[in-house]
Every structure is written in structure tokens, then in C-alpha cells.
Design a protein around this nucleic acid. Sequence first.
DNA 1: GGAGATTGTTATATACGATGACAATTCCGG
DNA 2: CCGGAATTGTCATCGTATATAACAATCTCC
Lengths: 160, 160
Amino acid sequence: MSKPPSPHRPRALAPIERLPGVDYGALDELLGYSLRRAQVAMFLSFHRATRGLGITPPRFSALVIVRANPGLSQSTLGAVLGIARSGAMLLADWMVGRRLVERRRRADDARAWGLHLTRRGAELLEKTVRAVAAEERRVAARLGASERRELLRLLEKLAG
Amino acid sequence: MSKPPSPHRPRALAPIERLPGVDYGALDELLGYSLRRAQVAMFLSFHRATRGLGITPPRFSALVIVRANPGLSQSTLGAVLGIARSGAMLLADWMVGRRLVERRRRADDARAWGLHLTRRGAELLEKTVRAVAAEERRVAARLGASERRELLRLLEKLAG
DNA sequence: GGAGATTGTTATATACGATGACAATTCCGG
DNA sequence: CCGGAATTGTCATCGTATATAACAATCTCC
């Protein structure tokens, strides 16, 4: 453990561009593929917004969830993020290691920890949310504001 | 090597559901998060459509690209998919190992292999494309046909 | 009070893709 | 043409992010 700041290398640091002269065949008609390309684009946007902070999308989501639900357990955090308990714990370890989050014993359940943002965590998160939202708006500028809202609605509907 | 059919375990085999009583805070307003949730939903759809075939999304994309661009090199395949040459080679190894694709020497460049779908590959791919498209339509039935088209357009625009 | 579920924790396994090196081959400036 | 630079496939190795399985402590409920 005790890794250095962690270079935090994303899986893909380049956008998936359409190569001229290449036929994409059936992929052009499939939602799954477009979804993936769009997601890579947004991932790069996120990466630019959080450069050097060592914050990955799951870590970011975890911080946001903890802020919005003070005192929630690691198990619940994992359920919300759709990952296993063990993974949620690693996330919590990271947040605690950075002093962004504290684990406090819960009165109602001695098994579980309650996760709480520290002042430091709240400040960092606030700044980060703003940066991520700003970068996202820059990318989404290709869409109009109403198109952006429509996209959000359709994605939500699709995800169920 | 020579693994059995490969259980092909996806990273997430459960949808990311919204938990009642949990506040998602800033995530609700961010495209990146909705994009991810939608992508997990489509990934599960893909998984259902290809159950037991050992076909993953990158493998599927590779087959589609090879079919649409017979004779392309492994490097080009990697560039199209947005992965490194070494990864494209593993993909090609898998396809060749399953006798879905053949490597043929190219007349114009003795360094590169040309990738070509075999008859077997063509048949399997055709069936798979139909199954994936059908499952996708089932999921996208939550959207109307015009909404689906609109979503595809917005994603394309966003990915640039 | 006790059986069974839940929580946190740890160890272990696996999958994926990147990086960096290498030889063979091709490209290109002079 | 010739020789250095770039490209292609290949391989070995690494890092990251998951999952699974086991365990002790604790809670729930009958």
C-alpha cells in the first residue's frame, strides 16, 4: 500500500475517432457502440477536469454519494455504485487515506461504519464538481442546451 | 491457454439500479453518470444476446470491422477500436483460434497480415448481429422508434 | 437464546489493456 | 541506390479494477 500519488492512468487516453476510409458496418446502427464512443468522450472530459487529483469516476461518484447521504455504510455505497462490498471498501480506504472522508462508528449498528465527508473533502468535492460540470458543458456545447437536456432524458429512460 | 469455452464474466452483471431512499446529488445532472448507467444497461443487453458464445463487445466490434473491411491489418484494427497494437493482436488471436478469421499475407506489405472473415466467421457474425440488434430493440422499446433515432443522433454528435 | 443474515475485512484470482523492447520490412531524403 | 527513420507484428511484463470466497463480529428475528 501507500502508493505514491498514483499516476492514475485511464484505460483510454485518446478519443475513439472515426477513421476515414474505414467502413464501420453494422456498428453504425447499434446503440451500444455509439454509447461507448460517447462515454469515452465524456471520460476524457472528466479526466481533463480532474487532472492531477487522482480522482477517478468511481471515486468521484463515491464522494458525491457520501456528501448527499452522510453516514451511509460501505455496503450501501457499493450497492449504489453497483460494485461489490470489497470494492466499496477500497474506495472508502482511498477517501479516508486522503482525509476526504471519516469513518465513524454508528450508534445503531456496531458492524457498520458511517461515512462522512470531512471539511477538506467537502471543499475538494465542491471544487471538483464545478470543474467536472464546466468541462462537461464545454463538450456538450456541440449540442444545444435543449438537446443536452433531451439527451439526459433519453439516457435516463433507457437505463430504466 | 486453451481455456474452456470461457465463462466470459462481464465486469458488471447487474444493472445499476436507483436505490430508493438514496440521494444521488450532483450525479443526476451529469451526462457522464447517465451515460454510464445507460451503457451498463446496453452491456447487459449485449450479454444476453451473446450468452455462451464467448463474444465480448470488443470481439464483436472486431468481427464487424473485419467483415466490413476485408484484408485490413491488425494495426488498423487497433486504431479503429481505439486500442494498442498488442491488444488488437490478442483480438486477432482469439478470432483466428476460433476459426472465424484468417490471416493472409499481403502482396503490398510483407510486414502486415490481412484479416479476412472465414465462412464460419461470416455465418456466426450474421447470426450474432441479428441477435444483438434484436435484444437492443427490446431494451430500446422503452423509447419510441423516433426517440431511439434521436438518441443515436445525439450520441453521435456528442462523440464528435 | 440461537440460527441465520449482514458488515467489514482480507486474500486471491482474473480480465483487460498499456508499455517497452525486438526483428523484419518498408519508406524516404539525399 | 543507400541508409536512417518509421511501421508491423510479436512477446514479456506491468498496473488497474473488478470479482469471489472465506472469516469474525454483530445484528435480526423467532
